[in-house]
Design a protein around this nucleic acid. Structure first.
Lengths: 334, 334
DNA sequence: CTGAAAGCGCTTACAG
DNA sequence: CTGAAAGCGCTTACAG
């Protein structure tokens, strides 16, 4: 069963497809189509359940009302929650979102950009990784709005929305120090992206400002794609072999592995050992004791992203790049 | 800067667009294009970075190599993890996935179906809700493959992949009874969908088979979209006012609210009070004590869905509907 | 071995 | 107040 086309409607209504098109697109008034014709055509569209073929429309107009969202991993709750918020907000403004995960793989990221490009998405929201600078630059050169979020790529001049990772990290370390901690470890990843290095830098600077020497042995860099068991083993080894009285985990999944490690070596969080996780997680509120965390204001981030995108879309990409740094919130628990 | 078209390539190579098209689509051999021409055209495509416009291709061929995935809520980890697995598997077979959330809203679900329809997706994977039967039937009548997962709609005759909710629930209750529990509560939702009612039925049947009377007062139906605080209050009220020595939570987010409720009234899980959650969650392994859970085999479910879809796609929708019920795993912890 | 031409379903500048 | 026609970028049956 083939679906209806504009031509079928035109035939049924005994008018030209031009007329039908004007009516569908709300240009009936402007083109001074008579009320009677408008009514008749609308009725036929209604009854027949006709839906315009968006593919044909896109081919003709060159835009799609679709925004492409490229993230690291949709199964990570930070991204899935952001995705959901962006989806909602875009939807209310008549835009649809299609999203896909890069898995931190440069080739997959490039393929996704090409996929979206070949689908003529109207704009791109990207949590970028190193190695896609050229591809993004080409998008920009072609006049596509591109917004980075969560992470930035310094070599690309486009808008960015992200949390203030440096200060979040700095404040966490400062709060440890205020509690009298001296041997503060950092569990981070070996991914070389700005938002991770900023967290590392905040850690360093806070130590420095408080006259505490930076000790590389207290910084554990976990390899990105490794098995969780190995991560747990490395964290255990850090805690067993070094004197550590506080740990900042740079992502929530590292913190979760860390909590498992603590359980295995039966090390308790309490007065003499403190923990903060970057990005909150349902498990932390529930944990005994409850785990402190840095919260990124997802709602604000999503809203900022959508605003930037819509501005760019309506002004045909002439706007200068903007950087929006959103403050985080440190939630100290128990 | 406009992007290149097949015509640009044809002009540069001094051949017809037909020839270029054959080469792009791997039909060069079959159409006996000379090696020299193939080489020349491929080189030009390579150098220029030309990517065929998929929109034009879709309009012409009528298919898109895109599978639409419609779920309840991408920010729910069950769905985001399934989405990720499906995405991976589809991707390896040359299909892209676009997904969107219904938020359990019939109108939004219908709109999404229309959106995907107007984009000519090749197939639909849907976690359905009541009220969209007609819309799905229309898709099927048009010859589109549609696979339901997680939930089924009895009135629609299409393939389904889902966990064995009835047995999972039955076994959980049986395990409570084996531990000597007598006053077993069920915390469920008021959504009227098969996979929830099956869990309820499993609960009933297990009680019955063990000669325990079903008590409606021990079944708490939480309203779907309510504030978490209210949910917590209702669970607290159940536990404080009734004699309860075991609870099966029918979804993991209800279990999480339940754990918060337990914390607030300081009721401990242990020998005289047991809990099982439907769908595992990172928080459960970490909780003290660890929380037992029913695991759905996500990998198997995703694999089964993709297989069904690809079969249907390659056989042009003549296959009879299949039902795949995947056994779950009850993980008893502590 | 290769190309001209029709057609997918729309939108829109132009003409009347 | 309305319509004929060009064109968006492809694919493919047909012809040579």
């Amino acid at each position: 069963m083939k679906s209806l086309s504009i031509k079928d409607i035109a035939v049924k209504a005994n008018v030209s497809i031009t007329t039908v098109s004007f009516i569908i697109n709300g240009k009936a008034k402007e083109k001074s189509i008579s009320e009677a014709v408008i009514e008749k055509v609308k009725k036929i569209i209604e009854e027949s359940g006709y839906k315009p073929n968006q593919i044909a429309r896109s081919l003709r107009t060159g835009n799609s009302n679709i925004i492409g969202l490229i993230i690291e991993d949709i199964s990570n709750s930070f991204f899935s929650r952001i995705a959901r918020l962006i989806e909602d907000k875009a939807y209310k403004r008549g835009y649809k979102i299609i999203y896909s995960s890069t898995e931190n793989n440069v080739d997959k990221a490039k393929e996704l950009i090409n996929l979206f490009k070949s689908r003529k998405v109207d704009a791109y929201i990207i949590s970028p990784i190193k190695g896609i600078e050229e591809d993004v630059q080409m998008l920009l050169d072609d006049g596509n709005p591109v917004i980075f979020f969560d992470r930035n790529l310094p070599d690309v001049d486009t808008s960015y929305v992200g949390a203030d990772h440096f200060n979040a990290s700095y404040q966490s370390i400062q709060s440890f120090i205020d509690q009298g901690k001296k041997n503060i470890a950092l569990v981070t990843t070996d991914i070389n992206v700005a938002q991770i290095t900023e967290r590392h830098d905040g850690y360093k600077k806070a130590l420095e400002d408080n006259g505490i020497a930076y000790d590389d042995d207290l910084v554990l860099k976990i390899h990105f794609n490794q098995e969780e068991n190995e991560t747990i083993a490395q964290i255990k080894s850090l805690l067993e072999n070094k004197k550590v009285d506080a740990v900042l985990f740079v992502t929530n999944y590292l913190a979760i592995s860390g909590l498992k490690a603590l359980k295995q070596i039966d090390k308790k969080i309490g007065d003499d050992f403190a923990v903060i996780a970057y990005d909150d997680h349902e498990a932390f509120e529930l944990h005994t004791p409850r785990i402190s965390a840095i919260q990124q204001p997802l709602e604000e981030i999503a809203e900022a992203i959508i605003k930037l995108i819509l501005n760019r879309l309506s002004s045909k990409g002439k706007l200068p790049a903007e950087e929006l740094i959103i403050p985080t919130r440190l939630v100290l628990r128990d």
